[in-house]
Nucleic acid binder design. Structure first.
Length: 140
DNA sequence: GCCAACGTTGGC
DNA sequence: GCCAACGTTGGC
């Protein structure tokens, strides 16, 4: 099992919209960055990810699960771009803000802290547990 | 709303 | 293949 982090501006695609999709999930489309795409290609069914609201709230608000592995982005007119489908698993009891991640020295190597511009990021198992602990949320 | 950081493009 | 110019992202 691998762990990831998906970023979205709440105005564009929010956690609430993701939850509303239920078990069916939704394509994580619109990624036009090779590094982010390569991360999605590496994802397996059942992998978990954090759902992060960028720019305005800057906080991790929920946990999602990969429910379809990488396939062509249906909204792209270019076969280079692929995406996975994700579905909401559970919200965070307490959202974990970027500031909280920056303050916790155990998370100093987290991609979110060091490379704020990458929209789909890997998260280590260690980081996963720490963030869930900060958010008082079941990491399973 | 500003601007730093980063990625991409294209001229040479 | 280098690098300047440009566009976008996202924290503040």
């Amino acid at each position: 099992m691998n762990y990831w982090l998906f970023k979205s501006e709440a105005e564009v695609w929010s956690w609430d919209q993701q939850v509303a999709k239920g078990e069916a999930g939704e394509e994580w489309d619109g990624v036009r960055n090779y590094q982010a795409r390569n991360n999605m290609r590496a994802m397996k069914l059942g992998d978990r990810g954090f759902f992060y609201h960028s720019r305005k709230e800057t906080e991790i608000v929920g946990i999602v699960e990969v429910c379809a592995e990488a396939h062509p982005d249906s909204k792209a007119n270019d076969p280079r771009w692929e995406c996975v489908d994700i579905k909401a698993v559970r919200p965070f009891t307490k959202p974990v803000t970027l500031a909280m991640c920056k303050e916790d020295h155990r998370l100093k190597d987290m991609v979110l802290v060091n490379n704020s511009r990458l929209s789909v990021q890997p998260v280590t198992e260690e980081e996963w547990k720490i963030v869930c602990e900060l958010g008082e949320t079941d990491p399973s």
